[in-house]
């Protein structure tokens, strides 16, 4: 096993930063090509008229997930060295609820607002400004609810820990769910979509 390369010391911190930039370029390029530089396209997701967000996100998730698991199976990649978002259930769920509201009102999420700004979307600029302001406010009021931010901490829990199933089985279920969602999304777009 020799992946992830960085964790096996195949290159240093500075090289990592150059790679970060290149990966960012690919990420930004793809987001723009997907149409995520348009707030209206993103927001129409919530009115069932344009399900691009769901399709892109779940396709990306299953591609990356399947790739990770197969690389692990081939003894190329050590899963335990891949950063796993720690689970801190309550702030994540509360934060998610707040972000859902922000998404529909603002029309972007942080990453897509940067891409939108990059191609000159004025609502993108305002959104980025708002997001920076929101983060400043968060930092300022953080001391008052510090306890909440660690409540429901479960460490590196995964869906397979929770369901008590092997990661491969969970992955299969995720693929099935994604295919089901794609089918529903196509139906919804046919029914509610703006143009055929």
């Amino acid at each position: 096993m020799s992946a992830p390369f960085y964790k096996f010391d195949l290159f240093g911190y500075e090289t990592g930063l150059v790679i970060a930039f290149l990966i960012g370029v690919a990420f930004g390029f793809t987001l723009e090509r997907a149409g995520f530089s348009s707030s209206r396209k993103l927001a129409l997701q919530f009115y069932l008229r344009d399900m691009t967000v769901l399709k892109v996100m779940f396709t990306a998730i299953i591609v990356a997930m399947t790739g990770l698991l197969y690389l692990n199976l081939a003894d190329v990649l050590d899963m335990s060295k891949i950063y796993l978002n720690p689970t801190v259930l309550y702030p994540q769920m509360l934060g998610g609820a707040i972000m859902g509201v922000g998404f529909v009102i603002g029309g972007y999420c942080p990453g897509t607002s940067l891409v939108a700004s990059a191609i000159g979307k004025i609502d993108g600029f305002f959104y980025v400004g708002g997001a920076l302001l929101g983060m400043l406010i968060y930092g300022e009021v953080f001391p008052f609810f510090q306890d909440l931010t660690t409540s429901g901490a479960m460490g590196n829990a995964t869906l397979s820990d929770w369901l008590n199933l092997r990661p491969g089985v969970v992955a299969f279920l995720v693929i099935l769910m994604a295919l089901g969602l794609f089918y529903v999304a196509e139906m919804l777009e046919k029914r509610f979509g703006e143009k055929a």
Binding site: P91, G95, I98, G102, G106, Y127, G134, G139
Partner: peptide, 13 residues
């Protein structure tokens, strides 16, 4: 919306 999202994103890690 940006402000709400920015706040929520920090809370949600």
């Amino acid at each position: 919306g940006g402000a709400i999202m920015g706040f929520g994103a920090r809370l949600a890690l």
